[in-house]
């Protein structure tokens, strides 16, 4: 590394200057932070699994499905709306678009890191900007998803004793109250990670544009925020499966 002082440590690895895992201190600590974050998200998703498992499931043909507080809803019947087209049953389409946006922004982040290795400032700027745009698009989609979830769908779709519309932390039209509470908590916690990721990405993007990385001599900071950003994408892959698909 260009900016690290060379420490002479003959025979004693504990005097510093060596990297036993061939990764810098900052990168290593980012990895361990992400590990702890992975535990948090695992706990949340496993809690979702447990609470869902402790409620009865809907039994019967999917075409007969109606929202009820008595059993856990089928996700594709809840998340079936797309912006600008009203009243069309398009299950999982919108959340699929969100997934692709996040995967693409992860790809642009890899390209930014790769350009950083080549000291190509212009390319780093370009790809980091695309990453930030992708993150903002995802946040916009999630804002729409949340407001639609909270406002609720047409009551005409609700058959039976269900007279609620929309969702709050205490009750919702889709199913048991825990369903909406978990939706808000898990996608909210992930969304907050995306938000902080965009903020951190922007901070590093700014430092790149003013030439800080060239003065320092390497683009390792881009690599570190890259790790965080990929982790956010990784978590979404799991949220997508456990919240929307299963």
């Amino acid at each position: 590394m260009a900016n690290t002082a060379v420490v002479v440590n003959e025979g004693n690895p504990w005097r510093g200057g060596v990297e036993p895992m061939k990764a810098s201190y900052g990168k290593l600590m980012m990895w361990f932070f992400l590990l702890s974050d992975a535990f948090t998200f695992s706990a949340l998703l496993i809690t979702y699994g447990m609470i869902r498992y402790s409620h009865p499931a809907f039994e019967g043909a999917i075409s007969d499905f109606a929202f009820s507080q008595e059993y856990w809803p089928i996700p594709e019947m809840v998340f079936d709306a797309v912006p600008f087209v009203h009243g069309i049953h398009a299950p999982l389409v919108f959340v699929g678009i969100m997934t692709f946006i996040l995967i693409l922004s992860s790809v642009t982040m890899v390209l930014a890191v790769e350009a950083g290795h080549r000291m190509d400032k212009q390319a780093v700027e370009k790809w980091m900007l695309w990453t930030i745009v992708g993150g903002l698009m995802f946040l916009g989609c999630q804002a729409w998803e949340w407001s639609h979830f909270i406002a609720g769908t047409d009551l005409a779709k609700n058959v039976g004793s269900n007279l609620l519309q929309g969702a709050s932390l205490t009750s919702n039209q889709y199913g048991p109250s825990n369903f909406a509470a978990l939706f808000f908590f898990i996608t909210g916690f992930h969304g907050f990670h995306v938000f902080s990721g965009v903020v951190i990405n922007f901070a590093i993007f700014y430092q790149v544009t003013v030439g800080k990385m060239e003065r320092v001599g390497h683009y390792e900071m881009v690599e570190k925020v890259g790790l965080y950003w990929h982790f956010v994408d990784l978590v979404w892959v799991f949220v997508f499966t456990f919240f929307y698909l299963i």
């Binding site: 895992m21 990764a23 590990l35």
Partner: peptide, 30 residues
Amino acid sequence: KKSLIMSILLPLLFVIFLIFILMVQGASIL
């Protein structure tokens, strides 16, 4: 390096334990 890979992957075994224990719990609550 392999030591870094293992430092990240091995602690995740606890997650598998948590899945097992909370699924049992969920079934009992039901």
